[in-house]
Amino acid sequence: MVKGNWALFEEDFYSISLILQTLMRSAGSRSVMLIDKTGQLINSIGEPPGFDVTSFSSLAAADFAANAQLAEMVGEKDFATLVHQGTNESLYLSLIANRVILVVLFDKKTSLGLVRLKARRASDELIVVLNRLFNKLQYRNEEATVPTLGAEFLAEADSEIDSLFRE
């Protein structure tokens, strides 16, 4: 991986977006998100949600992490999918390639069964793209540099940090 981090490149981002769009349409859901297991939003497709997606991502990751611990306690490897069913809005969350969380936000216009079916199909496709991406990151690590984040980036970031984070 790129110096212990993970990076998303344009071609992979478009492949992922396409899969998410297809999922959203075929499942009749309102929006679909892909979140890194550590709580960072990777991509969001569909109706712009009426909530803060950054906070949502951190909570979804925490939800998953807590549930994984519960799974372990009851002797399961993990709970690969979670469903939160509300009166009007529901959430379907599923762990993919042990790295990212697929979140489908849906309402009463569709059913959990359909969401589950389409999400499984999308997960299979996402695994292919993600594995390709991880292999690429492994390869780029050997090059040991990320060309766009150089000394100029650091200098500019430092001065921005100094000007924003002060009393």
Binding site: A7, L8, Q40
Partner: peptide, 15 residues
């Protein structure tokens, strides 16, 4: 784990 998204041009870091 910092996430660099070269497509949407975002960098996210966790402290």
């Amino acid at each position: 784990m910092s996430l660099i998204n070269y497509s949407s041009r975002e960098i996210n870091c966790k402290i």
